[in-house]
Amino acid sequence: MRIPPRVAQTVARVVLGAATFFTVAVLIFIIGHVLVKGIPVLSFRFLFSNPEDMGRAGGIFPTLVGSVLLPAVALVFAVPLGIGTAVFLTEYTRESKITAAIRFGADCLAGIPSIIFGLFGFIFFVTVLRMGWCILSGGLTLAMMVLPTIIRTTEEAIRAVPYAYREVSFSLGATRWRTVWRVVLPNALPGIVTGIILSLGRSIGETAAVIFTAGSSLRMPSSLFDSVRTMSVHFYILAREGISSENAYGTAAVLVLAVLMVNGISYWLMHQFMKRFS
């Protein structure tokens, strides 16, 4: 018997809808679970005091500092490189074998799993360059990891700037670089910042690449050459070694709130940017 098309459509709609809402529900459950169990643990003292007894008691302050410093170092290196690459690809060359190779490199880099970055960072920065487990090793490894994101979002943002803007600038006698610097980049800024913030979110949550390059020392770092433990590494160790499920939930809640906030801001910025040019 043939199923009438209208019925088939209704069935499909219900099935697809159920799948979608299941997905959204699972994701919201995960966030909700972590926040409900974790937020009661949070306090000023939890955030700003040192951990005691391997994290069984006390707060998470050094790991909070680690989670700020490591992504900051990563961005200091990745942002200029990423924006420079995107400007070169969009404003300074035509599509050619070179641009294809650069894009291929960035796409491949984006697909490499974080554990491979961790292995590389361990052998290259920590061992060959003799930097040891430290903030700088971890930050440089993260920089390589987020570079493709920054390149891609910056490229998109630059392409969204209408060509007429450049023509006006050229017609006023500005050189190419002046046009890029004074006209293109300022107009693409919200889009570029979105990419930077997305990268920030990714580096805050990263664990595998960080644990083998920045180490897991719980002491407060005093220079970029000190080992540090980030919140995500701390959370992993607390949860996996069963040290303290209460503090694990607390750390997870801070981590999730930070990432949600960062991604929320970037989403909002992207929205503003899209509105402006469409």
Binding site: L27, I28, I30, G201, G205, A208, A252, V259, V262, Y267
Partner: peptide, 10 residues
């Protein structure tokens, strides 16, 4: 899109 950013450890 927000949820795509939840860290894998979570």
């Amino acid at each position: 899109e927000l949820l795509a950013g939840i860290p894998s450890v979570v």
